[in-house]
């Protein structure tokens, strides 16, 4: 691995996280917001695995397994919420869910 240090991986994960954050903030579709959230999770996982590789310790990889599990649980709950919302309001855009607005 010549010339590619830890910084390269950290910058790549920061860029992936930022693209995911742009997707969360910019798109109106709830499903796409959840997908962008998965991108942000992936950025964090790249961080964990890269640090575990450059500082020789397996804890980062173990932690990324837990992070992937939490992401799977989160997406199951989120998509269940999307289905319940769609059944009740026939809407899929985030700015149409304004029932709690004062």
């Amino acid at each position: 691995m010549d010339g590619i240090g830890l910084n390269h991986y950290l910058i790549l994960s920061a860029m992936l996280f930022s693209i995911g954050a742009i997707g969360v903030l910019v798109r109106r579709n709830v499903i796409l917001v959840l997908m962008s959230l998965e991108l942000m999770f992936n950025g964090a996982n790249i961080n964990l695995v890269a640090v575990s590789y450059f500082h020789p310790d397996l804890t980062g990889q173990i932690f990324s397994i837990f992070s992937i599990t939490v992401a799977a649980a989160e997406v199951a709950i989120g998509l269940g919420l999307v289905i319940a919302l769609f059944r009740n309001k026939e809407a899929i855009n985030v700015d149409e869910f304004n029932l709690l607005k004062g």
Binding site: R27, N29, I31, I83, N93, V94
Partner: peptide
């Protein structure tokens, strides 16, 4: 899972809405 949910909600409904929030420029 995402593909299932996309097929469950109505796709024709989704086609014609504008897809960006009003706040997209400050967000970026």
């Amino acid at each position: 899972l995402f593909l299932f949910v996309i097929m469950l909600v109505n796709l024709n409904e989704l086609k014609r809405v504008e897809y960006l929030h009003r706040q997209w420029l400050p967000a970026v």
